[in-house]
């Protein structure tokens, strides 16, 4: 079973939120910056990879119950968005790598576990 803590370590992600746990299971992922599409398609236990930093990402993550959000390309949201995520128990992660590279690494990581 792959946990958030394994993903954060393996991908070298920066943790933006505080007080949010890492014990949720990760089984898949979604990469999308259009929140209407994420709302329609994201599954619980997905990692959501995006460059969208608008405050609505917190609500979308909450509603879809994704395991965590990875902001790619060095994108960091405003502090009030990070604070809101911490309050809501949404794990916000950041990386300087592109969405493409993050997806590749995450896919390889999840695939390695299935073997």
């Amino acid at each position: 079973m792959m946990l958030l803590t394994d993903v954060v370590t393996a991908l070298g992600l920066q943790v933006l939120t505080s007080g949010v746990g890492f014990d949720r299971e990760v089984r898949g992922g979604i990469v999308c910056d259009l929140l209407s599409i994420v709302l329609a398609k994201a599954q619980p236990q997905d990692m959501w990879i995006t460059i969208q930093r608008h405050q609505n990402i917190v609500a979308v993550a909450k509603v879809t119950s994704v395991a965590g959000v990875i902001l790619a390309d060095g994108i960091v949201p405003e502090q009030d968005v990070i604070d809101r995520a911490s309050e809501e128990g949404i794990l916000l992660l950041a990386t300087k790598e592109s969405s493409f590279v993050v997806c590749g690494k995450l896919f390889a990581l999840l695939s390695s576990e299935e073997e």
Binding site: L34, L35, S36, V38, L39, Q52, H54, Q55, N56, A59, V60
Partner: peptide, 11 residues
Amino acid sequence: LLGQLGFFPET
């Protein structure tokens, strides 16, 4: 707005 952000921002 609805396509990009899903719903009206609260703020």
